[in-house]
Amino acid sequence: MNPTWNAIRSGLERGVIELRQTFTTAQDLWGYLFPAVVLLVVMTVMRDSEVPGTGFSLGAMALPSVLGMNVAYGGLVNIAQHLAVEREDGTLLRAKAVPGGMLGYLVGKIVGIAGAVLVSLVLVLVPGMFLFDGLALTGVGTWLGLLGVVALGLVATMPIGAALGSLFPNARSIGLLFLPIIGLIAISGIFYPVTSYPEWIQWIAQAFPIYWLGLGMRSALLPEALVAAEIGESWRHLETLAALGAWAVVGLAVAPIVLRRMARRESGSSVAARREKALQRVA
């Protein structure tokens, strides 16, 4: 068998194994359930408020936006976190010592994170379908649109997330990512229509993938009338495709360079040095 295909196949298997492991690890289960419950509670509280000028439930509007946010969060933060942790603990070095191991590792990471993102979506979407009225969930187009946005969103965010994870010096410094991400979520129209913000904030939001993922999800899951609350009163499908596509192109161009540079520097002594440091911190 061709070694490259073999490595990809081993990587797929790796992703499936790692995803399965999350279902039997208490910490990972908590990581799935806790955010889902918090988000559902928040949206339920918002249920009786209205999207300005539409009479539509703000909670129901937030549901698709939250799905988009989860895709962006998984693709940016989770993958960055995994890479930083697994570089520090030597997982990456092990991959490097095996023929085709780095390719297998990356394929595995993509599959594992994508799977975890899907799980987090289902955990919000399924209870949400019962909690909120008015979502357009019947047509085949709805589900195809949803899957398309998820796929495009992952391609747009994961390479950037991987590059960020390679740039941070250790797992703890990844915490620095949270603040800007939370700020972006706040201005990206996830919990409140972006059109109610000043125009300059709208411009900032539109520079990042979180806004576009929220918009894409809303266009798939909300009734047509809700378009009134969007910028330009349009779902802007082409713009969504262009913006997420641009992030994907930048990510796919930058990530291999950053990842390769990071991987080249890994050796037994660099892992040992970080272990020393981490253990000192504990002590």
Binding site: P3, G90, A97, P99, G100, G268
Partner: peptide, 16 residues
């Protein structure tokens, strides 16, 4: 990679 396949490296693991 085909050269790499003929080598073995015993690494000191930590918690990977």
């Amino acid at each position: 990679e085909s050269w790499r396949a003929r080598l073995g490296v015993v690494l000191q693991s930590w918690r990977d």
